[in-house]
């Protein structure tokens, strides 16, 4: 893996993953705002360490990587909290929690709730699969938003203006020769 891309993605991903978990501050995660900023910041960091212009694909990759890292942190922490909260809870209690969750939905029609509860055994029986599936879907969505942030970042910060040609130094040309100050030369 390209280390020059991994480092900014990792730094930005970890920082914004943690920020997204802080109460009140995480409200800006509306529309995955923090994750888009995460991708943007990762590309800005990548751009600062890279003397060349940043391509859109590079921006998308760096942004998506940072978004994925942040998403993994968010989902891992959520998963840990869920495990702590539901540790030792029996399947009957889980069914009751599921019932309350469904009753909270806008259609609290008892008939409909009973219909949904027919699915409860299937869901609770495969709870781990469902939890991981939702976590995975969450990671995919957040990665896409990170990638979008990275794409915008590449467009905003990616262009580098080439250094203007320095005036010819007559003095040095007769000495050891002119040394270029351009990076990579």
């Amino acid at each position: 893996m390209d280390q020059s891309k991994l480092k900014p993605a990792l730094i930005s991903g970890v920082i914004f993953g943690i920020i997204s978990l802080i109460p009140f501050v995480n409200l800006l995660n509306c529309c995955c705002g923090w994750l888009m900023i995460c991708g943007l910041v990762a590309v800005k960091m990548y751009s600062s360490n890279n003397p060349n212009a940043i391509k859109s694909s590079d921006g998308a990759v760096v942004g998506a990587m940072s978004g994925a890292i942040a998403a993994i942190i968010i989902q891992m922490v959520n998963l840990i909290f869920s495990i702590i909260n539901y540790r030792g809870v029996s399947s009957e209690e889980l069914k009751e929690i599921f019932r309350r969750e469904i009753e909270k939905q806008p259609t609290a029609d008892p008939k409909v709730v009973e219909m949904v509860m027919q699915w409860a055994d299937l869901i609770i029986g495969n709870l781990i699969i469902f939890v991981f599936l939702f976590a995975l879907i969450g990671i995919v969505i957040m990665t896409v938003f990170g990638g979008l942030g990275g794409l915008i970042g590449a467009s905003l910060f990616g262009k580098k203006t080439p250094p203007s040609t320095p005036p010819y130094d007559y003095g040095q040309s007769f000495g050891e020769g002119q040394k270029s100050s351009y990076p990579g030369q």
């Binding site: 409200l27 995660n29 509306c30 529309c31 995955c32 998403a71 968010i74 939702f134 879907i137 969450g138 969505i141 957040m142 938003f145």
Partner: peptide, 8 residues
């Protein structure tokens, strides 16, 4: 639930 990571 699927869209919950996107919004509160």
């Amino acid at each position: 639930k699927i869209l919950s990571p996107v919004c509160h």
